[in-house]
Amino acid sequence: MNNYLEIRRFRDDQIIWVSRNHFQLNQLHDEIITSVITLSIQQIAERYGPIPCPFTFFMMGSAGRFEQSLWSDQDHGIIYQKQGTEINEYFLALGKEISKGLQIAGYVYCEGGVMASNPLWCKSISQWRQQLDNWLLDSSWELIRQLLIFIDGRSLYGDASFLESLKMEVYHTIHKENLLKKLLSNTLHLKKGIGILGQILVETHGHHSGSLNIKEKALFPYVNAIRLLAIKENIFETSTLSRLEKLPEFELSTIKRKLYTQQFLKLLNIRLSLAKPDNYENSHYISIVSLSKKQKEEVKEILKNGAALYRYVRNLVEKEDI
């Protein structure tokens, strides 16, 4: 494809066909993003010459976890092999080009600036190593949050080993310095999705009155809890489902693993089938009044199990001796 608008058209044509299938949808997202990257590389090569050294472009957030809905914002970074002023500038320009291309192709900019167009997320491997060490050692709330974002990183283009080796070092330090509890406390606040009478707690004000914020109240507990277990067990997979699959029996019994896998899958499907698909913001909400009785019960089950899983992981991490 020769320009970003063409990619956008491709996206608009294709996405309808996979909009009800979580796996096909995420494959399509990968395909679209990869074509943006390829095109950006061409554009930058025309302007500044060929790529100076090997690199990897990786996705984070829901794209990193292979858990995008119809819409998502862009979260990504670049790791390159060598460093030098010109090389830094080259990859930053590439990051900016990709980010612009993704925007045109239908992925809104990340409000928090988690993008390869931001020097914070576009670095040589040695600079990355230093930055990650800083994040781990400083371990302030904000830096730990960035670290958790990084841990969901998944290479989409280039040499995946750069990302893997950095992650391995991060995991090593987390265990050596006993930082798991610190990571836990970063995502400890759980927004209640279900009241003590067993009712679904919906938004009371604004455009989404009467709707459940499925992202914060249903998805977050599963994703955050399973990420922690994955870190604990040195699992490099990024999707919640594959992390669940890799967890050893002593960490989560087979019965529970099956239950949570099934619940999370159901959640992904409910999100695709029920959330208003018209834009990024709306895709996080499902209207409760429009649910059938059966669907309502399913949502309640998902919320209850998410909270239970979160409690379980919390106890597990808090019990760890320091």
């Binding site: 984070m60 957030g61 829901s62 990193g64 914002d73 979260d75 990340c110 409000e111 928090g112 988690v114 904000e142 949050r145 960035q146 958790l148 974002i149 969901d152 995502t187 992202k215 998805l219 977050f220 994703v223 955050n224």
Partner: peptide, 8 residues
């Protein structure tokens, strides 16, 4: 307003 968010 700008506050750090966890990416989803």
């Amino acid at each position: 307003s700008s506050e750090p968010k966890l990416k989803f």
